[in-house]
């Protein structure tokens, strides 16, 4: 096993052990943390973030970042909410198809501007973050979609299902996670995404269409943010143009980065991302248990991002130094 490979394993193992320690400490301090209710809360909070994290992970692996996903989520949630007001009978499958398509288009727009005009993706998506959020207000007229606008079969999607009453969104997000894993780990395209992020010049020399690969990642990232919009409507039972999805991109990015996906591209795994998101979810539920005010959540997430970035950079620096690439 190479140094880097080891490091990745250590990273995944590391987060896993942090999770274990965290859970034990929380459980010792307050046994209420180990109740079914709090774990249910963890696993209900996760799917939304997890689904978005899969797309964001792909984008980061190919050396970009998409910070517009919160607005994409809100737009798709508003669109589907407005449709429910008109057509309360809209089936879940059709809703999925609609939200996914809405997100896909928005993601592709991001990808198009990034690849065509060669501007850093963070700046482009900072623009579309506002652009899409503005569209949310324009389309909705600023009006909130209320609980009674959302049909019962959509709400129950996040509460129960035919399978042991496990919430539908949990099952569905598990499927997306597994599909992403298969795509990234085992498909030709998935490996080309890693190759593109690892060394774009070499990828081009080997005949990989770097533009297409990048567009694909942005497209999927948008699509999954769109699907998350449906999850949001189902789980929270309302969509508010000014609240829904605001700031969620930073939670997603925090989870992806702490999960071992390198911001310099080329590395990252679905398992790591899952563990990263799980850790954030547990922290979220455990904070009140540990008597830490919920207000600290964002600061903790921010700290996690900065520490993970610094750690990654230190490791890259050390490894380059080991291989004689730079002079200290």
């Amino acid at each position: 096993m190479s140094l880097f490979d080891k490091f990745l394993r250590i990273r995944e193992l590391g987060i896993f052990s942090i999770i274990v320690v965290f859970v034990i400490v929380a459980a010792v301090i307050d046994p209420r943390f180990m109740t079914l209710d709090s774990w249910r809360a963890v696993f209900l909070a996760i799917p939304l973030i997890l689904v978005m994290a899969m797309g964001q992970m792909m984008v980061i692996i190919c050396r970009h970042v998409d910070i517009s996903i919160g607005s994409i989520l809100a737009f798709s949630a508003i669109v589907i909410g407005l449709l429910y007001i008109q057509f309360p009978g809209l089936s879940l499958w059709l809703s999925l198809l609609i939200t996914a398509s809405v997100g896909l288009v928005m993601g592709l727009i991001n990808g198009f501007v990034v690849t065509r005009f060669n501007v850093h993706s963070i700046i482009v998506t900072l623009g579309t973050l506002s652009l899409y959020r503005g569209l949310v207000f324009i389309v909705s007229g600023g009006r909130q979609i209320d609980r009674n606008d959302i049909p019962e079969h959509v709400v129950s999607f996040s509460q129960t299902s035919f399978l042991f009453s496990i919430p539908g969104i949990l099952i569905f997000s598990a499927i997306i996670v597994i599909l992403t894993h298969l795509l990234m780990r085992h498909s030709v395209l998935g490996r080309e995404i890693y190759a593109t992020g690892s060394n774009p010049v070499a990828a081009h020399l080997k005949g990989i269409n770097v533009t297409k690969v990048t567009l694909f990642c942005f497209g999927i990232c948008g699509m999954l943010a769109g699907v998350a919009g449906l999850f949001y409507a189902s789980r929270f039972g309302y969509v508010n143009p000014g609240v829904t999805g605001v700031g969620i991109e930073f939670i997603v990015i925090a989870g992806v980065i702490i999960g071992g996906t390198s911001i310099t591209g080329g590395s990252g795994s679905v398992l790591g991302t899952f563990l990263g998101i799980l850790l954030l979810g547990i922290i979220n539920v455990a904070l009140p248990v540990l008597n830490i005010p919920g207000e600290f959540q964002k600061a903790i997430y921010g700290l996690i991002i900065v520490v993970a970035l610094a750690l990654d950079q230190l490791i890259i620096y050390r490894m380059k130094k080991l291989s004689g690439g730079i002079n200290a």
Binding site: F250, F296, K298, G302, L303, I305, V306
Partner: peptide, 9 residues
């Protein structure tokens, strides 16, 4: 982007 979250937090 990281410190944006941190400072606001």
């Amino acid at each position: 982007i990281g410190t944006l979250t941190l400072y606001r937090g």
